[in-house]
Amino acid sequence: MIKFTNVFKAFPKGGLALKDVSFHIAKGEFAFLTGHSGAGKSTVLKLIYADERPTSGEVRVSGHGITDMRPRDVPLLRRRLGIVFQDFRLLEDRTAEENVGFALEVTAARQSTIAARVMRVLTQVGLAAKAQAYPRELSGGEQQRVAIARALVNEPTVFLADEPTGNLDERATRGVFQLLRDINASGTAVVMATHDLDLVRQAPYRVIELQEGALVYDSAVDEPRDQAAAP
């Protein structure tokens, strides 16, 4: 599903964001991407959704090679991915429903099917009652749920989350995390970048840890280690 082979990524002004990173995430897998800020978590995600290209090495996502992908194929790839961020990235002048529907409109989906699909995902994230609310009228947790609904509406095969709980309180964090687990349970691969180790310990999922751009630990290949010793 997602395969990194000896990936290097140089910063534009010199220095390496990623150094020889290799891993493979299988279909339907849930993987945490951990590490300090600046360790390269976001870069890994950007390579997956083709916002960045590797300097060398190979990145493959759902059968597409990112390294030499043509710019006009990038939108098609993104429609098969669901992406959420720490800062939600909702359009402020649109209601929850319109924000979610927007992701369908860009794919030229038929107007008649949009409303039904939007309501289905909003129900799935528990926000059907707030479909008409604008982002500013919603709490942080609710805004992230709208973002998750938007990411889900195109029925992605891979779900990417970059610190999705970074701006949320404990209760909202639990709710959002449970949603991601549900999404994974329905067969979608989930890659979640986080530095919230409590969250990582709660679940028996794979952990890939980066340090200064290098992959230092991968629970799928390395010996299990004492989680308390992890950074």
């Binding site: 990235r89 992701a103 860009v106």
Partner: peptide, 9 residues
């Protein structure tokens, strides 16, 4: 940027 993220051409 958001449009691009959700796959707008």
């Amino acid at each position: 940027a958001i449009m691009r993220l959700v796959g707008a051409t």
